[in-house]
Amino acid sequence: MQQEAVTAVISGLKRAGVSVVCYLPDSLFKPLYPALDADPELRTIRVTNEGEGASICGGVFLSGQRAVLVMENSGLRAAVEPLARMGLGAGIPVVMLMSYRGELGENNWWAIPHGITMEPVLNALRVPYRIVREQADIEQAIVDSYESSYASYYHSAVVLGGGIVR
């Protein structure tokens, strides 16, 4: 992930009014995490699994502040239970930013399941999402994700793939 993409992510989060970032670090977003930690306008919270991160983001929503859950797309599977309960059961939204592991061109055997399951899991939860592969589209995709989630009071996701993360 190039520095320009890191900058675009942080610009998008700030334009969307985000103040809290929950994350479980992964390798494709590796330079993003220290940049988030270093930003004085963002409170970062490292979590033990993405389901916990989703739940914390739900609590932040209830406070009136805006949160994002940053993770590898495999984390979506770990977060399904709280996402289903908060989103479908109570209408508490979580906006997710995930790296696209297992995309066409993936050269790690262990990452293949992430590519196979990501879109079916998002669709099973009826989570609107956008896969972004051009750096110029990152910032607006993040802003759009918050517009949707704060109209629907449901989750949404931005997936960064292609040359942005590989």
Binding site: R43, G58, G59, R85
Partner: peptide, 13 residues
């Protein structure tokens, strides 16, 4: 499994 994490998020906000 969500209750204390949600409460923590609320406390942060």
């Amino acid at each position: 499994g969500c209750v204390t994490p949600e409460a923590f998020g609320l406390a942060v906000g």
